[in-house]
Design a binder for these strands. Structure first.
Length: 846
RNA sequence: GCCCUCGUGGUGAAAUUGGUAGACACAACGGACUUAAAAUCCGUGCCUUUUUGGAGUGCCAGUUCGAGUCUGGCCGAGGGCACCA
């Protein structure tokens, strides 16, 4: 018998799908649509295993939905602007455009080899002027709507490279390349007013019931809504400062206030600009880092001012004002009041600077008192030491009451604060979408007229300049708008802007006039299932949700503002890591083993290799497996099968050569079984019991349909193995050939989405005319014979009895009494109670 | 520090959502076939003396006729916490 030749057969079907336009999607209002989308890749060079996993998961779903009769949109594109192209181009003296285009070609070919059900007519690339033209139009639309503005903002500035650094490019306060000390510098930058939609973005989460809870919680924390109030502290001192405005979520602890702390960037800092000690303190603070984590973990530091703050609720109480490293200017008003007894940060600060501790909440448990616990108490309790607030229950009642009183006395007012900041979209880079703005001689903002779009990036320019290469392109940035001499904006857009609307472009990628066609997005949107890595859980998804709302803003005819109805976040592909004796990373190709425990360098048994933990595949750790090699050796179906088989898709999966091989063997085994089944069908035997195979097939249809719908793809693969094991035995018995053929077709159909090439070939050998349809389970055909009932005595399993068909509880009990294994437990004993779960289990309490 | 998730054999994992714990696979071991190896097929897997039986889903309690699943506490691992995509 011939082996399954995946090389020939996979190519054959990939050609067939192209020739038959199998995946072409056209709006058809008579058909139910399904928009299946996986996060589009950055064209970094070649596809990696993470892509294989991502796109296989999506492909199984898309093919499943197609077979169920949905009109499926399943497109692919390229997130093709970004720093890697610019860096690679700089290093190798290339053109980022050519570099990117070459990568796209390679990766497109590789994706095609995977046999994905992509409608390639819908392909887009964000670095093409046809795409970014519309992005520029959107930018101007948002500008007109007041959702885009320019303001000064701090950036990480590398004074040697004269460039802005991303946070990750700052290592120990120094630039990653130059090693120069990074400065905080203020630059004029463009912002999207995402915070305008804070509340909407938060509330919208509740309706997203097909999103992982984890992602919703991350977004919720990111938006960070907090309820509290703003209040004014009167100030006494030698400086011309009358008051300081604070935000607090706990106005009910105001009588416990023993200091006021402000950010080092607070307006009052201007009075200390020439104070050497203050500048040293500022320097010290900048070492801490600005992430929430580092601020929370760092030692609380303060710098005293000469000011005293007056407690708004009791003017006789005056407390010192400090600069403090744990207060951020961009949250609230950059000022807080400290209540050491009931906030851990304030507690630490007060301890260090010997400030008062005043308990104003009496805890429910004695042991939680700060005197005994030596920790701030943040739990519920009763208000004490607070005059007119005393005896209120904290926090719920007391906060509301405190705000009410503060408002009545006109000392403060209720305020809802958000952590979410506006989205800075300016990047001082070449390889990004140009911002369609220019400035005239008076430095006024001049929009590039719509008819002049796209503002194309200049090509073939020198990238090895200091700072942003576009700043050196005089013949590009010097322009005239309406006869006025202007200079173009040389910043480009954050690449997150490109990806926050690409799913709309897929719906009408050929429309040259507009970014999308309203009719088409009304049909296709929202994306029914979005699949990608959890690393995009916050920014990309939040920005996309913002973009929909920004476009919808003041455009009433628009649609549901949620772009992604269902979201699935897949885990990473991991592999063991290897190092040589000099602690240099080794790739799996460089090593070998005789006993699968000890590894050594290939061909050098004495050169031992250190095996490290399994980590997500990355070029830097050299623990990658090249998908193209695997496809060449084992075929696309085998890789698809393996990448789904070992772990649930939302969890990380371990790459395993043995597992990969096993998947390949399964395909070969299945092919042999298929040949056997075809030859049995050709014998046209009309005898034999077809009920068992009917039953099995319908059970499997039911199981597999559910596994796909719930993304339990690893279970799906296990179901395939079960199916193989069953069929391999069952065909030894005589089966009516018509029944075998009918059931086998259904079995092949439900395996098709995972192994489309193999199964297509099997299907046409069974029936020459290719037809694909998802079968539905007929529950009537599922045999209820051989019901196994678990018999428990006092909750312990004692035996399983097998029944020919359903019987009543009383009959069952009679039968149990006859069972010898059970008899010894129950003889001479009265049944106190029996619990019977139909056809499953009986528990007898004695 | 704050927030979230997860702990099941040698390994990856299943478990109809409170009802037979370990499906399916990898690895290991034993056997068959073979001159031999590879490939393939069959079998084994905790404790106790075979059967009977017992223990068992990180640890300790609890709810329940019944807990991997629910509740509380503890221990351990991982992830998120502002512009790398």
């Amino acid at each position: 018998m011939t082996r399954y030749n995946f090389k020939v057969i996979e190519k054959k079907w990939q050609n067939y799908w192209v020739e038959n336009n199998s995946f072409k999607s056209v709006v058809d209002k008579n058909k139910k649509k399904f928009y299946s989308l996986e996060m589009f890749p950055y064209p970094s060079g070649k596809i990696h295993m993470g892509h294989v996993r991502n796109y296989t998961i999506g492909d199984v779903l898309a093919r499943f939905k197609m077979m169920q009769g949905y009109n499926v949109l399943h497109p692919m594109g390229w997130d093709s602007f970004g720093m890697p192209a610019e860096n690679a181009a700089k290093q190798n003296n290339l053109d980022p455009k050519k570099w990117t285009e070459k990568n796209i070609k390679t990766m497109r070919d590789q994706l095609k080899q995977l046999g994905l059900s992509i409608d390639w007519d819908k392909e887009i690339s964000t670095c093409s002027p046809e795409y970014y033209k519309h992005e520029q139009a959107f930018f101007l639309e948002l500008y007109d709507k007041g959702l885009v503005y320019r303001k000064e903002n701090y950036v990480n500035w590398d004074p040697v490279d004269e460039t802005v650094l991303a946070n990750e490019q700052v290592i120990d306060g120094k630039g990653w390349r130059s090693g120069a000390l990074v400065e905080r510098k203020k630059l004029n930058q463009w912002f999207f007013n995402i915070s305008k939609f804070s509340d909407e973005l938060l509330e919208g989460l509740e309706a997203l019931d097909e999103w992982p809870n984890k992602v919703k919680i991350m977004q919720k924390n990111w938006i960070g809504k907090s309820f509290g109030c703003e209040l004014d502290f009167g100030i006494e001192g030698s400086l011309p400062v009358k008051n300081i405005k604070c935000f607090t979520t706990r106005p009910d602890t105001l009588f416990g206030c023993s200091f006021v702390a402000v950010s080092i960037d607070h307006p009052i800092a201007k009075f200390y600009e020439n104070d050497k000690n203050f500048l040293a303190f500022k320097e010290e603070c900048s070492k801490t880092g600005t992430t929430e984590e580092s601020i929370a973990q760092a030692e609380k530091l303060g710098f005293p001012t000469s000011l005293m703050a007056i407690n708004p609720l009791d003017p006789s109480i005056k407390v010192p004002v400090f600069f403090a490293n744990f207060v951020l200017m961009d949250y609230g008003f950059g000022a807080i009041f400290g209540c050491p007894a009931h906030d851990q940060r304030d507690f630490d600060f007060a301890k260090k600077y010997n400030l008062n501790f005043i308990s104003v909440i009496d805890p429910i448990n004695e042991k939680d008192k700060i005197e005994t616990n030596n920790k701030a108490y943040t739990g519920p309790g009763k208000i004490i030491n607070s005059k007119f607030l005393n005896n209120l229950s904290a926090p719920d009642q007391s906060i509301l009451e405190a705000i009410k009183i503060l408002e009545e006395k006109k000392l403060g007012k209720k305020k809802i604060n958000f952590r979410l900041k506006d989205w800075g979209v300016s990047r001082q880079r070449y390889w990004g979408c140009p911002i369609p703005i220019a400035y005239n001689d008076k430095n006024e903002i001049i929009k590039v007229p719509l008819e002049d779009l796209p503002v194309k990036l200049p090509e073939n320019i020198n990238l090895n300049t200091k700072g942003n290469p576009l700043d050196h392109q005089k013949d590009w940035f010097d322009i005239q708008i309406n006869g006025e001499k202007c200079k173009r904006e040389t910043d480009t857009l954050d690449t997150f802007v490109d990806s926050s609307w690409y799913f709309l472009r897929f719906c009408s990628n050929k429309n040259t006039k507009e970014g999308f066609d309203l009719d088409e997005i009304k049909y296709w949107m929202p994306v029914d299932q979005y699949i990608g890595g959890v690393e995009h859980a916050i920014l990309h998804l939040l920005y996309s949700r913002f973009f929909m709302r920004a476009i919808k803003h003041e455009r009433k005819e628009f649609i549901n503002p949620e772009p992604f109805k269902g979201l699935f976040t897949q885990g990473m592909v991991c592999h063991e890591t290897y190092k040589n004796k000099n602690d240099q990373w080794l790739s799996p190709d460089e090593i070998e083993t005789n006993d699968k425990i000890n590894y050594h360098l290939k061909g050098m048994p004495d050169e031992k290799v250190k095996v490290g933990p399994s980590e997500s595949m990355s070029k830097s750790k050299k623990n990658t497996i090249d998908p193209e090699k695997i496809i060449t050796n084992y075929g696309a179906d085998a890789v698809r099968l393996f990448i789904l088989s070992d772990s649930p898709p939302e969890k990380d999966v371990q790459w395993s050569d043995q597992g990969m091989l096993a998947s390949y063997k399964f395909i070969q085994k299945f092919w042999l079984l298929h040949k056997k089944i075809i030859s049995i069908i050709l014998l046209k035997n009309e005898n034999g019991d077809s009920k068992p195979i009917d039953s099995f097939t319908n059970i499997m249809i039911d199981k597999i349909t559910k596994s796909i719908e719930k993304f339990h793809y690893n279970v799906l693969v296990a179901n395939f193995h079960e199916t193989y094991n069953y069929l391999n035995k069952e065909i030894e018995k005589p089966i009516n050939y018509l029944s075998l053929s009918k059931n086998y077709k259904k079995i092949l159909s439900i395996m098709h989405p995972v192994m489309p090439h193999l199964i297509s070939e099997c299907l046409v050998e069974l029936e020459p005319k290719m037809s694909l349809e998802w079968p539905t389970a007929d529950h009537k055909k599922i045999l209820n014979k051989n019901i196994n009932i678990v018999v428990q005595i006092n909750g312990k399993k004692r035996t399983i009895i097998n029944l020919g068909n359903e019987i009543s509880e009383n009959q069952l009990i009679l039968k149990i009494k006859e069972e010898p294994l059970i008899n010894k437990f129950i003889k001479n004993k009265k049944f106190k109670k029996t619990i019977y779960i139909k056809n499953k289990l009986i528990n007898i309490i004695i």
